[in-house]
Design a protein around this nucleic acid. Structure first.
Lengths: 93, 93
DNA sequence: CCCTTTCATCGTATAATTGCGATATTACGA
DNA sequence: TCGTAATATCGCAATTATACGATGAAAGGG
């Protein structure tokens, strides 16, 4: 069964940004709401929200509404694996 | 040791295109020269060459010159793992 | 040498991404 | 209901990516 290059490349594209990659890694196990990420990343709220929107559109993360807060977390199990691979340090360099 | 988000996202960005992802997968084990890919992908030679340039610039693939031909192949072991993860079918859907 | 094959690079038009302030929306609490 | 905190969305300028024909450069073969 050949992979769906378009679909898979969409996931990669969502992750292919330093900020979004950082976000995705941070949302691996735990959940986190937007305001917390805004403070941690030191980026404008609109920018953070926009990046989260990209991750969500690609199915990388999912949300859970808790009152006025929105909690994000990584959904796709494949993404979990991808990020694990990236985290592994390369053999010397 | 935290991952280098910029560097890693560059690799992801290189792979985050349907054509380049297909190329990279095709260059996993075996080597292939440009003309062969042009025919297989049915895309203009300049387009193929440009995509290969992107993959090379990101360190995803490396080349070996054989006379007038240029043989490409996947270099980064991390990329091999990434593509393997992507190839694995998702659990139901 | 010239011609052909193979590949890279250039030029450039079009499209997509990015960053971020401004503005809308929604859920609560007072 | 008003105000406020938390998010999303809009608008838009600036940057970057994409596609591909045209052109350039290098290696052989005859």
């Amino acid at each position: 069964m050949p992979m769906d290059y378009i679909r898979e490349s969409e996931v990669l594209k969502a992750l292919a940004h330093p900020v979004r990659l950082r976000m995705a890694e941070g949302l691996l196990g735990r959940e986190c709401h937007v305001d917390k990420m805004v403070k941690a990343l030191k980026l404008p709220q609109s920018t953070v929200s926009q990046h989260l929107g990209v991750l969500k559109a690609a199915g990388v993360v999912g949300i859970r509404k808790e009152g006025v807060k929105t909690c994000y977390r990584v959904l796709a199990p494949k993404v979990v694996e991808l990020i694990k691979v990236l985290s592994k340090g390369e053999v010397s360099r």
